[in-house]
Simulated scan of single mutants.
Amino acid sequence: MSDPPPIDVIAGVIRDSRGRILLARRTEGRDLAGRWEFPGGKREPGESPEAALIRELREELGIEVEVGAALITVPQAYPQKRLRLDVRHVSAWRGTARGLESQALAWVPPARLSSYPMPPADLPVVAALQQPDTCLVTPEPGVDDATWLQQLELALAAGVRRVQLRAPSLPSERWRPLASAAAQRCKVAGAEVLVNGDAALAASLGAGLHLQAAQLTALEQRPVAKEVTLSASCHDLAELRRAEALGCDFAVVGAIKPTPTHPGAAGIGWQGFAELREQVSLPLYAIGGLTRADLPEARRHGAQGIAAIRGLWPQDQTAPL
Score class of each variant (00 low, 15 high):
I72G: 07
L129H: 05
L136N: 02
P258I: 10
H89Y: 13
G305F: 12
R112Y: 10
S17H: 10
Q317H: 13
Q164K: 05
G311A: 08
D86S: 13
G159V: 08
E275F: 11
Y285V: 01
P110G: 05
A77K: 14
E56C: 12
L209P: 00
G269F: 11
D316M: 10
G46I: 08
A33E: 12
R88A: 06
D249K: 07
A214R: 03
T229V: 14
D316E: 08
T138L: 10
D236G: 01
I287G: 09
P260T: 09
A51P: 05
L216H: 00
I14L: 15
A308V: 11
A155Q: 01
S169V: 10
A106E: 12
E44C: 03
K81R: 15
P75T: 02
S91K: 06
E278Y: 06
R30S: 11
P141D: 03
L83M: 13
T261K: 11
L312F: 07
H89L: 12
S204E: 10
T27E: 14
K257C: 10
G206W: 07
R166Q: 09
V160M: 03
P258N: 09
I54Y: 00
W93H: 13
R98F: 04
E66K: 11
V280K: 02
A245I: 00
G190M: 09
L23M: 10
A308H: 08
P168H: 06
G254D: 03
V193W: 04
I10G: 09
V90Y: 04
L170Y: 03
A266E: 15
L170Q: 13
Q315R: 13
T147W: 15
A121F: 07
L113R: 00
H262M: 12
S17K: 11
E244M: 01
R166V: 12
D31Y: 13
L22H: 04
E173T: 04
P296I: 02
P314S: 05
V253G: 03
L156D: 07
I14S: 07
I287M: 13
A183Q: 05
L219F: 00
A199G: 07
L156K: 02
E192Y: 09
P132E: 11
A52K: 03
W313R: 03
Q130G: 06
L209R: 00
G267Y: 06
R35G: 09
E101R: 14
L211Y: 01
A213R: 00
G305V: 14
R43D: 01
W313H: 02
A106L: 04
E66L: 11
S172E: 13
D198G: 14
P79V: 12
V126H: 05
D144S: 10
